[in-house]
């Protein structure tokens, strides 16, 4: 829709845009540039100290550490596990909820509740529910003869707890997104297939699944882009990246380097690498999205 004020010389739009642009420049874009700068100098944080250019030293020291290795490995696990749990699992649930129509309202409301509470609350509640000394979950499992131990203290299992929590938290939200996508499917198409004698499975496979494609892609990309940062809170509250770097990921690692080890150069180098990774993912997103959309046409 074209606007009524279309003279290119008018300063007005720029004035309206100025606050947003200024804020983004100062709080989003300048920091990226400054981080890149900090990644190639050595700085001991003393005010006014010299900041000699050290090239790629910071990058080398970060990538050679065990923290980086663990964080990278875990990042792959976080991402790989997130796909079935956060992208695929909500789909059959959404299909069912959608098939209930208005009667599914209660389900939709309850499933959405975890989206409303902060991850701080979720983590803190988990500290209680899973507490080996009296939390409900170990107590109930013990009654069934299963010894749960303390997953938070287990270097191998802790990450799965975090993944499980973040999947639980985002499930309702993703289900609702899929339900919205499903609601856009024209009834006549489904009814036509029914009249032709198609069974549930056939309708799902040939009609619903392809039409859900764009929504699925959207959820997939959002999940990949945001899963790592979403997990920051539970990691910080429950395990602080441990035990033995068992739950840290590349996002949390940057925080650990900068704020825990006070390795500003290392943190900055990690940030630059992470940003490059993000750009790659975003580029992949646009490539995929465009080719997919073209196919749909």
């Amino acid at each position: 829709m074209r606007s009524s004020w279309g003279q290119g010389r008018d300063p007005e739009p720029y004035l309206y845009l100025a606050p947003m642009l200024a804020l983004l420049a100062v709080f989003t874009y300048w920091p990226l540039v400054h981080t890149a700068y900090l990644s190639v100098v050595r700085w001991n944080m003393a005010p006014g100290a010299a900041m000699p250019f050290v090239g790629l030293t910071n990058f080398a020291s970060v990538t050679s550490g065990s923290l980086f290795a663990a964080a990278s490995y875990n990042t792959v696990i976080y991402l790989a596990a997130s796909i079935p749990l956060k992208v695929l699992l909500p789909i059959p649930i959404a299909v069912f909820v959608w098939s209930l129509g208005g009667r599914g309202a209660a389900y939709r409301t309850i499933l959405f509740l975890p989206t409303l509470i902060s991850f701080v609350v979720v983590s803190v509640v988990v500290l209680w529910l899973l507490n080996p000394m009296g939390g409900h979950v170990p107590a109930l499992l013990a009654m069934a003869g299963v010894a749960m131990g303390n997953p938070l203290a287990d270097a191998e299992r802790a990450i799965w707890l975090v993944i499980g929590l973040s999947s639980w938290k985002v499930l309702g939200f993703h289900v609702l997104i899929y339900v919205a996508g499903l609601s856009a499917i024209p009834r006549d198409l489904v009814e036509a297939m029914r009249i032709d004698g198609a069974g549930d499975w056939r309708i799902l496979r040939s009609l619903i699944w392809p039409l859900l494609g764009p929504t699925t892609l959207f959820v997939l990309i959002s999940t990949i882009l945001f899963t790592l940062q979403q997990c920051f809170t539970p990691i910080d509250i429950l395990t602080q990246g441990g035990p033995s770097n068992g739950t840290t990921n590349l996002f949390y690692m940057v925080y650990q380097l900068a704020m825990r080890s006070f390795d500003i150069g290392g943190g900055a180098a990690g940030t630059v690498m992470l940003f490059a990774l993000l750009l790659l993912l975003v580029a992949a997103k646009f490539a995929l999205l465009d080719s997919r959309v073209a196919y749909e046409r």
């Binding site: 279309g6 642009l21 874009y29 920091p31 940062q229 996002f251 992470l274």
Partner: peptide
Amino acid sequence: WSFRGRDALFVLVLAAMMVPPQLTMI
């Protein structure tokens, strides 16, 4: 309005959404 650089600025504004807080933290 339609003004010079509108589309580019729009992309610039939207792109900022993708920058996670951990990247600008330091």
